Computed example of a mutant assay.
Amino acid sequence: MAYRNKVIQFELFDKPTNLHIYTDPSTFYPFSYVYNWIQGENIRLIRNSSSSDDYDRSLREFRKFLVRRKYSEELIDRFVSLNYYGDRNELLDGAKPHKTRENKDKDLGNNRYISVRNSGSRPLLTSAILVVDNFVSSLNILDTRLVPVVQKGKSIVSVMNQAKKNLSGYNPK
């Protein structure tokens, strides 16, 4: 009796009614909300494609939809490049190979965390901390990294949304 190996092939199925209407990148939503999901979608494409050809085809279509919605091609490439088809087995096991690659370059034991209030000056303060960190690390003065940590609080988006909600209920006589 001869036994044959059975293999199930997977590729992404895109519903014909899917309009691919993603968040407009020119909105006031935080950058992370607008772009970070692209990496997750790329991981889904990798996991759901049995061959690299199927993955490449799905990724081309995905990029096309993003560009049509006016997403930056440079930023698309940045988030898609975090994982590639060679990571598939690790991704299927629930591992995060991009984190492993990222952490090889960092010494996690020498971080100094600087608390920053979540206020209107937060972007300026976090940028300043990162500039100082980059400067110090370029001089090789210390092997300590400075990491800004934002405290919990109201974001500008939540304040703007609340103001919008308040204005919509305002009925002058």
Rank of each mutant, 00 (worst) to 15 (best):
Pro148Ser: 02
Ser138Thr: 14
Ala128Arg: 03
Ser119Cys: 09
Met160Ala: 04
Tyr113Lys: 14
Leu130Met: 07
Lys106Ile: 08
Val131Gly: 09
Val150Thr: 12
Glu90Met: 06
Pro148Asn: 03
Ser158Leu: 12
Thr144Phe: 13
Ile156Arg: 14
Ser138Pro: 15
Ile114Glu: 02
Gly120Phe: 12
Tyr85His: 00
Leu91Tyr: 15
Arg88Lys: 04
Ser137Ile: 02
Asp87Cys: 02
Leu125Gly: 00
Gly109Phe: 03
Ile156Ser: 05
Ser119Thr: 04
Tyr113Trp: 09
Arg122Thr: 09
Pro148Thr: 04
Asn83Ala: 03
Val159Met: 04
Ser158Gly: 07
Arg112Thr: 01
Val136Glu: 04
Lys96Val: 02
Val131Tyr: 03
Lys106Leu: 12
Val149Pro: 12
Arg101Leu: 07
Ser127Phe: 05
Pro97Val: 01
Ser119Pro: 07
Met160Phe: 09
Thr144Leu: 13
Asn118Leu: 08
Asn111Gln: 11
Arg88Thr: 04
Ser121His: 06
Leu92Glu: 15
Tyr85Trp: 11
Gly94Arg: 05
Tyr85Gln: 00
Lys99Trp: 09
Asn134Gly: 01
Lys154His: 06
Pro123Val: 02
Ile156Cys: 03
Asn83Ser: 10
Asn83Leu: 04
Ile114His: 08
Asp107Val: 02
Val150Gln: 05
Val159Gly: 05
Ser137Phe: 12
Thr144Tyr: 08
Ser119Glu: 03
Val149Asn: 14
Lys96Ser: 12
Ser155Ile: 11
Ala128Gln: 02
Leu142His: 00
Ser138Cys: 13
Leu82Pro: 00
Ile129Asp: 00
Ser127Glu: 10
Asn83Pro: 00
Met160Tyr: 08
Leu124Pro: 06
Arg88Gly: 04
Leu142Arg: 01
Ser138Ile: 04
Leu125Asp: 01
Val157Pro: 01
Asp105Val: 01
Val149Arg: 15
Asp143Ser: 14
Leu146Pro: 11
Arg112Gln: 10
Val147Ala: 07
Leu108Pro: 13
Asp133Pro: 04
Glu90Asn: 10
Arg145Ile: 02
Thr100Gln: 05
Ser115Asp: 09
Leu125His: 03
Ala128Lys: 00
Met160Asp: 05
Leu125Met: 15
Gln151Leu: 09
Asp107Tyr: 08
Val150Glu: 12
Asn83Ile: 04
Met160Leu: 12
Asp143Phe: 13
Arg112Asn: 07
Ile114Asp: 02
Val131Lys: 07
Arg88Phe: 06
Leu92Thr: 08
Val136Tyr: 00
Ser119Lys: 10
Gly120Val: 12
Asn103Arg: 07
Lys104Pro: 01
Val132Cys: 11
Val150Pro: 02
Val147Trp: 08
Asp133Asn: 09
Leu125Val: 08
Asn103Ala: 11
Val132Leu: 13
Asp87Ala: 01
Ser138Phe: 11
Glu90His: 13
Ile114Cys: 09
Thr144Trp: 11
Thr100Gly: 11
Pro123Gln: 06
